[in-house]
């Protein structure tokens, strides 16, 4: 016992390490890792040529273009408006601010199917918003624009919620210093505030983009699901599953999973960057 204690640098006073870590790994493996491994196991039943043929078929390519394009566009729009919303919520006082602040999380809390049918109804030809856009020649329901609208809805809170705390912690002295040196408000924003918000903004952007890539429920109702036009990749996978073509569905799922893992890696790097930036400021 004495030898053991002298060898380890820290003496563990608290109990339960083996129990909690063991349970964590067991549960993680059972619920997440083993089932996820099944995707790659199932794909191995395809030859490389079959796999390549499936993931590059015209419907698949069209769905990637739509899914990635609409997700990117939605995340960009959210980055712009999300920054304004975060700014307004942190810096200004106005009537009903607390309610607005709480309401920002609605896309997290509202089930995707409910969001889906609501957006589909609002933007249909006779819908509240659709009938306003109809005379302008803008059609949203059953078009790619509809996919973009749904993805904007579900990505909305990500930017606000990542930028907001950073903006709150921003040291006012930096802005005062810039102002005392003769910078105007726009210059201060562009050269002092925005560079400091950049890591958080990029993290929020990446989170919104990653969420939009896999989104299913809120999109399928408004998209109309016209083959080659408004079919997103998750729906294409669903279609193959309905035909019990598990090999095809799994091949497409591998493409989506790889994209998700790349995004996850990017988000981790961004968050590390954000945190480094913060501690750097404190020092």
């Amino acid at each position: 016992m004495a030898i053991k204690l002298s060898r380890s640098k820290k003496i563990r006073v608290l109990p339960g390490f083996k129990l909690t870590l063991g349970f964590t790994l067991f549960y993680l493996g059972l619920i997440v890792l083993i089932p996820l491994a099944a995707v790659f196991w199932k794909t191995s039943s395809l030859t490389w040529a079959e796999f390549w043929h499936t993931i590059t078929m015209p419907q698949a390519l069209a769905s990637y273009r739509l899914t990635f394009g609409a997700s990117l566009l939605a995340a960009l729009v959210n980055a712009f408006f999300g920054l304004i919303v975060a700014w307004v919520l942190v810096r200004y006082e106005f009537f009903g601010k607390k309610i607005v602040d709480a309401l920002v999380d609605l896309p997290f809390a509202l089930p995707t199917a409910v969001a889906g049918i609501t957006l589909a109804m609002l933007y249909s030809q006779n819908g509240w918003i659709g009938q306003l856009l109809e005379p302008l020649g803008i059609k949203v329901a059953n078009t790619r624009l509809g996919v973009f609208v749904a993805l904007t809805f579900i990505g909305l809170p990500f930017i606000v919620r990542t930028v907001q705390p950073v903006l709150e912690d921003l040291d006012p002295e930096l802005e005062e210093a810039a102002a005392s040196l003769g910078a105007n408000r726009w210059q201060i924003f562009w050269r002092v505030i925005l560079p400091m918000l950049m890591p958080a903004l990029l993290t929020g952007f990446a989170l919104a983009f990653a969420r939009a890539l896999g989104e299913y429920g809120s999109v399928i109702f408004i998209a109309g699901n016209i083959p080659m036009k408004t079919v997103i990749t998750p729906l294409l996978i669903m279609g193959e599953l309905d035909m019990f073509d598990y090999a095809k569905a799994t091949a497409l799922a591998v493409v989506m999973l790889v994209a998700s893992f790349v995004m996850l890696l990017a988000i981790n790097v961004l968050q590390w960057w954000t945190n480094r930036y913060n501690t750097h400021n404190l020092a």
């Binding site: 099944a38 896999g214 998750p234 669903m238 989506m256 998700s260 893992f261 996850l264």
Partner: peptide, 21 residues
């Protein structure tokens, strides 16, 4: 990172993996 994994997986794939098992 592994604990966060289910968040980055599309809901459709989350269902698919159990069908595969």
């Amino acid at each position: 990172t592994l604990i966060d994994l289910p968040f980055s997986v599309s809901p459709v794939i989350s269902g698919l993996i159990y069908v595969l098992v």
